[in-house]
Simulated scan of single mutants.
Amino acid sequence: MKAAIKLSHVSVVRSDTTLLDRVDWTVHEGERWIVLGPNGAGKTTLLQILGASGFPTKGRASILGERLGRVDVFELRTRIGHTSTTIADQIPATESVRDAVLSAAHAVLGRWNEQYDDLDVRQADQIMGEMGVARLADRTFGTLSEGERKRVLIARALMTDPELLLLDEPAAGLDLGAREDLLASLQTLAADRSAPVLVLVTHHVEEIPVGFTHVLMLRAGSVVAAGPLESTLTAENLGRTFGTRVDLTYDSGRYAARRAQYGRRAAREEVGP
């Protein structure tokens, strides 16, 4: 199976601080990965490498078959979709949702004098429908709720038919209903065999959509564990990742975690009321 991402002994050092430390990681086509870790784990630095906007200090990084340092990164970036709050902040508040999605075809933020044909419009409408935002097509971006914005950003990222889609904490800041709507859309996307390779970064196991297949767990720039979700996402590995004892539960494809009880409190819970 072809590797979409291959990192070999990748380290990133800035101002004498090691942000990533000898990371080995391979992602194959068709896989859907979660990157999980606390603040300062190196997740943002990792995304910069995956998005071809950052480079390793040491080691080798190949993205979509192209080795960083030996490829035109501007061309490589056209094959990678990316969602983040930074992109959302650059979309004009008065831009229609349809135009916010359409303008990705020309890699611009804010429609100007670009020309789009009927095929572009149909593709945008189809993607918006798949992401559950078709009804918002004529609304302006500035009037959307945070959850609606997140789904529009994913639709925009899919407009260019990327081979790799990077989702940077897509559920951050959402209320319960908006989070569940977003996760339902991501579950649909994960189940689509024609969808790109997916890499979703999060702090919370509750934000892992059904259908994601693998997990990479980071702490202080180093890999704690990596592999299939069902065997790798364990209470032990989660505790090592976040530096605390954790109780992990699983139900109907969804995970939940909380700090493990211990001492007298744990004893009281075991006895019950």
Results as ranks from 00 to 15, higher is better:
113 N>Q: 12
8 S>P: 06
17 T>I: 13
105 A>M: 05
23 V>E: 00
270 E>Q: 13
191 A>W: 10
49 I>E: 00
74 F>N: 13
67 R>L: 11
232 T>Q: 03
49 I>C: 03
170 P>Y: 07
238 L>K: 03
57 T>E: 14
235 A>V: 07
101 V>E: 02
212 F>Y: 10
111 R>S: 02
63 I>Q: 01
171 A>H: 06
75 E>V: 10
120 D>Y: 04
33 W>L: 01
261 Q>S: 15
216 L>I: 06
258 R>Y: 14
89 D>E: 15
98 R>N: 02
147 G>V: 03
212 F>M: 05
155 A>E: 04
141 F>V: 00
32 R>S: 05
21 D>Y: 09
63 I>Y: 04
109 L>T: 00
125 D>N: 15
23 V>S: 01
199 V>H: 02
32 R>V: 04
138 D>G: 11
142 G>W: 10
200 L>S: 07
49 I>Q: 00
267 A>V: 13
105 A>G: 04
117 D>T: 00
160 T>K: 02
57 T>A: 14
248 L>R: 08
105 A>L: 05
252 S>A: 15
269 E>V: 11
7 L>K: 02
211 G>S: 10
83 T>L: 09
38 P>F: 08
190 A>P: 07
251 D>W: 15
266 A>Q: 15
32 R>L: 05
167 L>R: 01
143 T>E: 15
219 R>W: 07
118 D>V: 12
85 T>P: 09
215 V>D: 00
187 Q>P: 08
2 K>S: 14
80 I>K: 01
120 D>T: 01
150 K>H: 13
90 Q>T: 12
20 L>G: 02
77 R>W: 08
221 G>Y: 03
17 T>L: 13
270 E>L: 12
19 L>C: 05
171 A>R: 03
1 M>P: 12
79 R>Q: 11
245 R>A: 15
88 A>I: 09
96 S>E: 08
87 I>E: 06
135 R>V: 11
197 V>W: 00
198 L>A: 02
177 G>Y: 12
53 S>T: 15
50 L>R: 01
175 D>V: 10
198 L>T: 02
25 W>N: 00
153 L>P: 00
